[in-house]
Design a protein around this nucleic acid. Structure first.
Lengths: 114, 114
DNA sequence: GTCGGTACCTAGCGTTACTGTGTACCAGTA
DNA sequence: TACTGGTACACAGTAACGCTAGGTACCGAC
């Protein structure tokens, strides 16, 4: 993946994963596939699992083991109250930052006033 | 600064600084002040200088020392051709990622199809 | 019995922003 | 003279995060 995209993902990938789980419970492999089909083409599988470990340790999700027909048991993650709060915070931080950055893109003529 | 905001800045701050310099030549202290007045309230001063060192080493900017009336000489940075290319790339990566993320925010009902 | 798809996990690495601190120049002022 | 505060730059050490590159294991089909 491009260096730039990799760096930009930092801090947002966790929010993205929380958002996915927030829509309905999901497990790692499913989340990885979903991301790959939805524009985040080459996110490393290991990265997703690392994010899941982290958000579990921080207490943002509840976990349930569910047997699979096709392989090892799935770890299904569900967003809990703390996770919902974290997701809200993510969206507000994201809105704030992206608004600032969009301003910068538009604002090529207005050049401060000193 | 919040952990979340800090992490989200990774990868975008460099682009932001390039964008600022792209509007007109600028020096570190000036860039820091500008950021502070434009929503990026508590960006560490040292961080900005680190970014400037980096983009200079990567050859995105030309540098000129200009004496100041009020302190040590200023290092004025000007975007060069390579820097312009990098800035374009930043905007396209940014557009791509932010579009994906905005989709996620809206798309709370459409839930994949398996 | 081995190959491919499903499913999870880990150690080590590189990049990046922050913290904390230091240097230096200058104007005002007490 | 000494001190303070604003201007201006720089650097060492730290933490967080995503990637690389592996590995384990279950299962059906050929």
């Amino acid at each position: 993946m491009g260096r730039q995209e990799t760096e930009m993902l930092k801090g947002t990938l966790e929010g993205v994963v929380l958002a996915i789980i927030g829509r309905r419970p999901a497990y790692g492999y499913e989340i990885t596939s979903w991301l790959r089909e939805h524009g985040f083409a080459d996110i490393a599988e290991g990265t997703v699992y690392a994010v899941l470990v982290r958000i579990e340790q921080r207490g943002f999700v509840d976990v349930e083991k569910v047997p699979s027909e096709k392989g090892p048991p799935r770890k299904v993650y569900t967003l809990n109250t703390q996770g919902l709060e974290q997701l809200d915070e993510f969206w507000s931080t994201w809105s704030f930052l992206s608004a600032r950055i969009e301003e910068l893109r538009t604002d090529t003529t207005t050049q401060g006033e000193n």
